[in-house]
Design a protein around this nucleic acid. Structure first.
Length: 155
DNA sequence: GCCAACGTTGGC
DNA sequence: GCCAACGTTGGC
């Protein structure tokens, strides 16, 4: 899951109440559908920093709720306000994400250098989706590169 | 700041 | 339903 660290970084998430943040602002149907249809509580999340000097995986997190309507869509003062959405028929959903651990930044050059990660959707040329699924193989490969990560992974 | 890539919008 | 124009993303 991508986030701009200026807006919501892994540090921000770790500092939040229960280390949990609501993943507001997703305004892409495919990304929304991943949260609605694919994610389950407890699923592992790679917390990716984008739109910054050193983009890459900055932390490990987990899905902490089922999907529910993103409140920012109803707030006229929010940059994520969607006048075409209504509480009766909410268009945009989010999940809560619990940060588990900040890791050494695994930057894009390192990710691209790994043959095991060659098919990762987030690395695809032209990919603009802020949420992409990760295969078990990709997950295990990345987690295997991180020191002292077992303590935060329960399954 | 540039630009490739892609999603969305809206006229027809 | 097509598709050109436009806006956004995001790495560089």
């Amino acid at each position: 899951m991508k986030s701009e660290p200026d807006e919501a970084s892994i540090d921000d998430a770790l500092a939040a109440d229960k280390q949990t943040v609501a993943w507001t602002g997703v305004r892409n149907y495919q990304a929304r559908n991943f949260m609605r249809d694919q994610m389950q509580i407890g699923d592992g999340v790679l917390f990716y920093h984008s739109g910054c000097a050193r983009p890459g995986i900055a932390g490990i997190a987990q899905v902490a709720s089922n999907s529910y309507p993103d409140p920012t869509q109803f707030d006229p003062k929010s940059p994520y306000h969607d006048p075409k959405s209504s509480p009766d028929h909410p268009r945009w959903l989010l999940v809560d994400v619990r940060a588990l651990k900040k890791i050494r930044l695994i930057g894009l050059p390192e990710l691209r250098a790994e043959a095991e990660l060659a098919d990762m959707l987030v690395l695809r040329r032209g990919n603009r989706l802020s949420i992409t699924p990760v295969t078990t193989r990709e997950w295990c490969h990345i987690v295997g590169k991180i020191a002292n990560v077992k303590e935060v992974l329960t399954e």
